[in-house]
Measured scan of single mutants.
Amino acid sequence: MTYKLISNGKTLKGETTTEAVDAATAEKVFKQYANDNGVDGEWTYDDATKTFTVTE
């Protein structure tokens, strides 16, 4: 399945996607992506749209 990340960081804003077997796997990928880009904030997940959002 395709999962989307919306980043509302102070230094990184935008969207990216990943293919993953489940939401937990996608979350690990996205949290590593955010960490690699210096984004640390509040996370939410919408199962209906398969979208994670991180806001700093």
Rank of each mutant, 00 (worst) to 15 (best):
M1I: 15
M1F: 15
M1V: 13
M1W: 13
Y3S: 03
Y3N: 04
Y3P: 04
K4F: 14
K4W: 12
I6G: 02
I6H: 05
S7D: 04
S7L: 15
S7G: 06
S7P: 03
S7F: 15
N8D: 10
N8E: 09
N8M: 13
G9K: 05
G9M: 12
K10E: 09
K10H: 12
K10M: 11
K10Q: 10
K10L: 13
K10R: 13
K10P: 15
T11V: 12
T11D: 08
T11C: 15
L12A: 07
K13P: 12
K13D: 06
G14N: 12
G14V: 15
G14D: 09
E15A: 08
E15W: 14
E15R: 06
E15K: 07
E15Y: 13
T16L: 14
T16N: 06
T16Y: 15
T16H: 13
T17I: 10
T17M: 09
T17W: 14
T18D: 01
T18I: 15
T18Q: 05
T18K: 03
T18C: 15
T18V: 14
A20Q: 07
V21A: 12
V21S: 11
V21E: 10
D22W: 02
D22Q: 02
A23V: 11
A23N: 05
A23P: 08
A23H: 08
A23L: 07
A24Q: 11
A24M: 11
T25K: 06
A26D: 00
A26M: 02
A26S: 01
A26N: 00
A26F: 00
E27G: 06
E27T: 03
E27A: 09
K28I: 11
K28M: 12
K28H: 08
V29C: 09
F30I: 01
F30M: 02
F30K: 00
F30N: 00
F30G: 02
K31S: 03
K31Y: 05
K31L: 08
Q32H: 06
Q32T: 08
Q32G: 05
Q32R: 11
Y33V: 06
Y33P: 01
A34D: 01
A34C: 14
A34G: 03
A34Y: 06
A34H: 02
A34V: 09
N35P: 01
N35R: 15
N35E: 14
N35D: 11
N35H: 15
D36C: 11
D36L: 12
D36R: 08
N37H: 14
N37E: 06
G38S: 06
G38W: 05
G38Q: 06
G38Y: 06
G38D: 07
G38N: 09
V39L: 14
V39I: 15
V39E: 03
V39P: 02
V39S: 03
D40Y: 15
D40V: 14
G41Q: 02
G41H: 02
G41W: 05
E42G: 05
E42N: 09
E42S: 10
E42L: 12
E42V: 14
E42A: 10
E42R: 08
E42I: 14
W43V: 01
W43P: 00
W43E: 00
T44F: 10
T44D: 08
Y45N: 00
Y45K: 00
Y45V: 00
D46K: 02
D46E: 06
D46I: 04
D47P: 14
D47T: 07
D47R: 06
A48S: 12
A48F: 10
A48N: 11
A48V: 12
A48D: 10
T49A: 05
T49F: 04
T49Y: 05
K50V: 03
K50S: 05
K50D: 02
K50Y: 08
K50C: 05
T51R: 02
T51S: 04
F52Y: 05
F52C: 00
F52T: 00
T53A: 04
T53N: 05
T53R: 07
T53G: 02
T55M: 09
T55G: 05
T55R: 06
T55S: 09
E56V: 11
E56R: 05
